[in-house]
Simulated scan of single mutants.
Amino acid sequence: MYLSTPLTHLLIYLVINVVVYCVYWWDKKAAVEGAWRVRESTLLWLAIVGGSLGALAAQQVLGHKTRKEPFRSILMTIGALHVGLGVVWIAAPNLVVEALSHMRSSL
């Protein structure tokens, strides 16, 4: 099975963001109940690896970590970076492919 189609990428992206949203929901629930919490660094790493949409959605819908600085600013920066990368990918997909292949060859 060939896993490099745009639809496959979209589905993987959506699954990652649903999982990240659920992790944020779980952390919000734990905060309310005084239970074990997910580390902020883990929440931010989940956003960095592709879950920024889920993280930002959870932040807005659940009201989770909306006043916590610098967490809020870092998450917004990650979201803006992902939007910028998405725009570049849509506007110049060949540029992204070339950059990825260059990164692979330099490893």
Score class of each variant (00 low, 15 high):
residue 33 E to G: 08
residue 86 G to F: 11
residue 47 A to S: 03
residue 42 T to K: 08
residue 98 E to F: 14
residue 84 G to F: 03
residue 82 H to W: 08
residue 61 V to N: 05
residue 99 A to L: 15
residue 37 R to Y: 07
residue 69 E to Q: 14
residue 63 G to F: 10
residue 62 L to V: 06
residue 53 L to S: 02
residue 36 W to E: 13
residue 63 G to N: 13
residue 84 G to D: 07
residue 93 P to N: 11
residue 96 V to S: 11
residue 55 A to L: 07
residue 21 Y to S: 08
residue 82 H to L: 05
residue 93 P to E: 13
residue 106 S to C: 11
residue 81 L to K: 06
residue 29 K to Q: 14
residue 105 S to L: 13
residue 101 S to N: 15
residue 65 K to C: 03
residue 104 R to W: 11
residue 21 Y to K: 03
residue 45 W to Y: 03
residue 72 R to I: 00
residue 41 S to H: 04
residue 69 E to F: 07
residue 47 A to T: 00
residue 27 D to L: 04
residue 90 I to V: 14
residue 87 V to Q: 08
residue 102 H to P: 02
residue 81 L to N: 09
residue 97 V to Q: 15
residue 78 I to D: 02
residue 98 E to W: 13
residue 90 I to A: 14
residue 54 G to S: 10
residue 53 L to E: 00
residue 82 H to Q: 15
residue 23 V to H: 02
residue 74 I to G: 01
residue 91 A to I: 06
residue 66 T to K: 12
residue 100 L to M: 15
residue 92 A to F: 13
residue 41 S to D: 11
residue 92 A to Y: 13
residue 67 R to L: 05
residue 20 V to E: 03
residue 47 A to P: 02
residue 36 W to N: 09
residue 73 S to Q: 09
residue 54 G to L: 08
residue 47 A to W: 00
residue 82 H to T: 01
residue 74 I to Y: 07
residue 49 V to R: 09
residue 20 V to I: 08
residue 70 P to I: 03
residue 49 V to M: 15
residue 86 G to K: 13
residue 90 I to D: 00
residue 57 A to G: 14
residue 76 M to F: 04
residue 96 V to A: 14
residue 80 A to C: 00
residue 35 A to N: 10
residue 102 H to N: 15
residue 105 S to P: 01
residue 68 K to H: 12
residue 59 Q to P: 00
residue 83 V to Y: 00
residue 41 S to L: 03
residue 41 S to T: 10
residue 42 T to P: 02
residue 42 T to D: 09
residue 26 W to H: 12
residue 42 T to Y: 04
residue 21 Y to Q: 05
residue 25 W to H: 13
residue 32 V to S: 13
residue 44 L to M: 03
residue 66 T to C: 09
residue 72 R to G: 02
residue 96 V to I: 15
residue 75 L to C: 01
residue 98 E to N: 15
residue 32 V to N: 09
residue 94 N to S: 15
residue 27 D to A: 01
residue 62 L to K: 09
residue 72 R to Q: 05
residue 69 E to Y: 10
residue 90 I to Q: 09
residue 105 S to H: 11
residue 43 L to E: 03
residue 39 R to T: 01
residue 92 A to V: 05
residue 78 I to N: 10
residue 35 A to Y: 07
residue 83 V to F: 06
residue 36 W to S: 11
residue 20 V to W: 00
residue 92 A to M: 10
residue 28 K to P: 02
residue 87 V to W: 06
residue 75 L to P: 02
residue 61 V to A: 10
residue 73 S to D: 05
residue 53 L to R: 00
residue 31 A to F: 07
residue 61 V to I: 14
residue 52 S to Q: 04
residue 81 L to T: 09
residue 88 V to F: 01
residue 90 I to L: 13
residue 100 L to E: 12
residue 95 L to G: 04
residue 88 V to Q: 08
residue 52 S to K: 08
